[in-house]
């Protein structure tokens, strides 16, 4: 797989502010009851004193380049599409939870029927040229879904030109930008 053209769901954590709209828009889009959660915003506290900070980390399926769940699945129920989206064939799942043990992010969910289900990157929408529901809706415009190349371009537009803000602020300031 060409990682530059792989489609990814990128969370701009500088922007996520913890509103959790991605969680219910996902429920509605995918017709999910309480139970399986395709994405979940975790709140992480970092720092001490004046550097104390709340961080918000939505965790949908990462659709990993080399997905451990795909390798862990004993029945081949999990597979990666040519564009990088990791999907599950529920009819082949035997509910063994091997994928959950392999996933570093705790993504696989198990509904009432015991079979694995998870974020599909809203593949039904992607196939018609639309964004996944969470990315289309995010009020903070923190969820990006595109190829690696394009996501990286959007981030450069957001932060690259700014001297006072963003991950390279110090370097840019030094460079006199």
């Amino acid at each position: 797989m060409n990682t530059r053209t792989q489609r990814i769901l990128y969370i701009d954590t500088r922007r996520c502010m913890g509103c959790r709209a991605c969680e219910t828009v996902c429920k509605l889009e995918n017709d999910l009851p309480a139970g399986p959660r395709y994405t979940m915003v975790t709140e992480v506290e970092t720092g001490e004193g004046f550097t104390e900070k709340l961080n918000f980390l939505p965790v949908p399926c990462q659709h990993c380049g080399d997905a451990p769940c795909v390798r862990a699945c004993p029945t081949g129920a999990i597979y990666k599409r040519a564009d990088g989206i990791v999907l599950t064939d529920g009819s082949r799942c035997i509910g063994c939870h091997e994928c959950l043990l392999a996933c570093p992010f705790g993504v696989p969910q198990f509904g009432a029927n015991g079979r694995m289900t998870k974020c599909t990157m809203c593949v039904h929408r992607i196939d018609e040229g639309a964004l996944p529901a969470c990315a289309a809706n995010c009020p903070a415009e923190a969820i990006l879904c595109d190829t690696v190349e394009n996501v990286s371009r959007i981030l450069r537009e957001r932060y690259g030109a700014s001297a006072s803000y963003g991950p390279f602020a110090a370097e840019l300031q030094e460079a006199g930008r």
Partner: peptide
């Protein structure tokens, strides 16, 4: 075109 979590609920 963006709603909060309650909007969808």
């Amino acid at each position: 075109g963006h709603l909060c979590l309650k909007g969808f609920a």
